[in-house]
Design a protein around this nucleic acid. Structure first.
Lengths: 213, 213
DNA sequence: CACAAAATATGAACACCGTTCAAAATACAC
DNA sequence: GTGTATTTTGAACGGTGTTCATATTTTGTG
């Protein structure tokens, strides 16, 4: 057999990724398989391996797409409409952090299995994770650190970095447990309220600690 | 063939769980399989399925063991040696929460793959998770809520519950990301420092908010 | 002690999985 | 047209968890 040329490799990439994303709207990644996907696309498993290199790399490409989608889902800074004086207030930082965290949780809830794949998929070895992923993540953290720095100018860059990481790891933990229902049993899980509690308390104390005195 | 009676079912359970735990000290659960495990024990795969019901249930039993181990690893309250007056102080609550969180992180680091299995292993359906698991988890949370309640008597039970959950979800998130190295790239991950930052700031603001005024 | 009956470990079989690879079929250059 | 290079394919491989009839051992009974 040979080149059907129904689609270019790039088209096959897109088709495959779209198909996986569609599947992840309704079922976890563990219910998908290379063979099922290939059959659904009308190609053989080997073709997909030719295109992506391996099934693992295919899922990694899906994760790349998810990261872009997630970045687009987070509210952007909108620096134009905010006064520099207002920008530095505790209130503004508080609201913006809450907006970011809420959007993060919202995305996780809306694309549950897609979001889980992002963190469930472990690389074969702990072979360094791709640069694009690294870049997107540090972009997000740069935002957070800038927010904290603007709010509390007396805090050092190192302190801002640690606070940003602490805060986001916490936000992430709340999202994980809010979705997995593994820790908070049966009862209503109130993710938004937990996010609000975390950010309100953490930021307020952080701001207090770095006040000029 | 039939009953060799080298071991009782209960003994096989223990042997299997111990073997999996030993494996998890050095490699993730995905590197283990029912067949490998059976061969290692000198039994057939079918026997293990007879004993445990399925491979999934076998792993669930491992998780049960892990939860017990984890509970034993956390520092106990030691109520006898603390004065009631001291018990209610902010400082005491702060230290105790930090001790609990640090022990949690320590366990996760020391038994990395075992700890990951605890959260990676998803039940077939979201069929209610076992009661024993539910019990142990609520025991931990009862401790946390009691701590918070003792520290801030003016806080309602509902507020204590939310705070306990928020706090522990955050601690969990820090542990997850500290181990996975998926978010904080390449650089030193300072789990303990993040835990300290989280607890110090959150508790201080929480205490402030529920002061009598 | 012998024999029947219950219990149970087994291994072959099944349906999947991701991956490899020689061969076949197409596309392209001349 | 012809020849060559390219690419899809399907069969095969070794792996997975699970099922089940069978063979064997233990147990209960006469």
């Amino acid at each position: 057999m040979a080149r059907r040329k129904d689609h270019t490799h790039e088209q096959i990439r897109s088709l495959a990724i779209e198909a996986v994303l569609a599947h992840l709207q309704q079922a976890p990644a563990s219910d998908m398989s290379l063979r099922k996907l290939a059959q659904q696309l009308g190609y053989s498993p080997g073709t997909l391996i030719n295109v992506f290199g391996s099934y693992d790399l295919l899922l990694l490409s899906v994760n790349a797409h998810t990261l872009d989608q997630l970045a687009a889902h987070l509210p952007s800074a909108d620096l134009a409409s905010t006064e520099p004086t207002e920008l530095a207030t505790l209130e503004h930082t508080h609201l913006r952090l809450l907006a970011l965290a809420s959007a993060y949780l919202d995305f996780a809830r809306q694309h549950r299995y897609q979001w889980q794949l992002l963190f469930d998929h472990r690389l074969p070895e702990d072979e360094a994770l791709p640069v694009w992923q690294q870049q997107r993540i540090s972009d997000l953290f740069a935002q957070l650190e800038a927010l904290l720095a603007a709010c509390s100018p007396r805090a050092s860059a190192g302190e801002c970095q640690r606070a940003a990481r602490t805060l986001w790891a916490s936000v992430h933990g709340i999202c994980v447990l809010s979705l997995s229902e593994k820790l908070f049993t049966s009862e209503v899980d109130d993710g938004p309220a937990m996010l609000a509690s975390l950010i309100q308390h953490y930021i307020s104390a952080w701001h207090q600690a770095h006040k000029e005195c």
